[in-house]
Design a protein around this nucleic acid. Structure first.
Lengths: 224, 224
DNA sequence: TAGATTGTTAATCGATTAACAATC
DNA sequence: TAGATTGTTAATCGATTAACAATC
């Protein structure tokens, strides 16, 4: 138990943690088609990374394999589940029932990862649907709901001018971390985790690098 | 002209480029309320970063200010527009007319950044709508459409089992870079840019760090 | 001028990659 | 055993941060 706790460190990079979740997803699929063991090479190939990266990640989190047979999928999955928290379910609320909010809501894979989206909240009365699963509730009931069900994770999928307000309510009600889609630098206490996801910037960066690629190719052509 | 070309380098990190787009958005808003000049400190504050970071980013891309008056918004915007390509419009196709595809489609801010979403494609006949703006077209017409309009940027918002197929068509038709929402390591030529966005992993990582925060706090309590 | 700010160089930090010893 | 694989240490790479000279 002490060892497990020891492993939970904030210092771990988001990217390492995300890769762990990816390994886990792949292992589940591999297991479902009857595979029992895997080498770091196999995992690396499937994920588009290197075997060194895989072993480094595992080593960082204290996951170990076997020098002859690689990694036993059952063992690894058990450790990953404990580490990534499949066992204790974590409940999530989504604020904003637009396309982004709905996209996450519809994703069915969270439940088996220990995440449960328990409700959406919206300010538009036309979107309310208390009997849906998950229900879409009025924004006014957000604070009470979070308190009542002791929710700790939130998703902010509202327009940017409403985001800080929503976050403030969440913080007050006891949420400990959010995924934020609003394009704004939110203010929060330092023991609060914010993961900003800005889809506009992600697409714009693609446009930039496509242009950069073209420039490079033109330059090479000119050099000849 | 040579100088501008020189600035377009693949080596620049995605994060720096994304920050440039953010600076630009903020500058546009600042300008719209009548501000003429800004210090790196002001920009940093608005973006939740540091003035050193701002100046470093600018320096990297050859953007300069003034030791007394900071940065002139008009000048800076002009340079950023040239650098980030507001001038030559780039057209984008989105494949997958689900919630993610629609979320991007509905976003109205792309046009003024030089990006134009010209069409969505879907395999479900119920989603077709050729007269919408942008139109939703059958997947079968993707290849022809890309060729005809010389599209260079794509968004892959389809289920993971269809993603590689869609990408292969895109590559064949002349697309140079994509934003990929499918949770799969796509294969592509090396002069092709892929920006993977995995919303599931982003949310799961929040769950992890919330748990990690709690563990740390418990540990501190125990230490007393 | 004195003070404030930029722009750059150097230092630090962190993540990835390479090298390789251990060992099954 | 010989060969293959893990796990770790060291090297590299890249990005952020600190320090500070230049200068308006």
């Amino acid at each position: 138990m002490g060892i497990v706790k020891e492993r939970y460190k904030m210092k771990f990079a988001k990217l390492s943690v995300m890769r762990l979740f990816q390994y886990k997803d792949f292992l589940i699929r591999a297991k479902s088609i009857g595979i029992k063991n895997l080498f770091s090479d196999d995992l690396a190939e499937a994920m588009g990374t290197t075997s060194t990266q895989v072993r480094k990640d595992f080593s960082l989190f204290g996951l170990s394999g076997n020098k002859r047979a690689g990694y036993n999928i059952d063992d690894l999955l058990e450790q990953l589940n404990e580490l990534l928290g499949k066992n204790e379910k974590q409940r999530v609320v989504i604020v904003g029932a637009g396309n982004i909010g709905r996209a996450l809501m519809k994703y069915s894979g969270f439940y088996k990862e220990g995440l449960e989206i328990v409700a959406l909240f919206d300010s538009d009365i036309n979107n309310y649907n208390a009997s849906a699963n998950p229900p879409v509730l009025p924004l006014e009931s957000l604070y009470e709901f979070i308190c009542k069900y002791k929710i700790e994770i939130g998703v902010i999928a509202v327009p940017y001018h409403a985001a800080q307000q929503v976050l403030d309510i969440m913080i007050l009600a006891g949420i400990k971390g959010v995924m934020n889609f609003a394009p704004i630098a939110l203010k929060s206490p330092k023991d609060f985790y914010i993961n900003d996801v800005n889809l506009k910037l992600e697409l714009e960066s693609v446009a930039y690098f496509v242009k950069a690629l073209k420039m490079e190719q033109e330059e090479q052509t000119n050099d000849v």
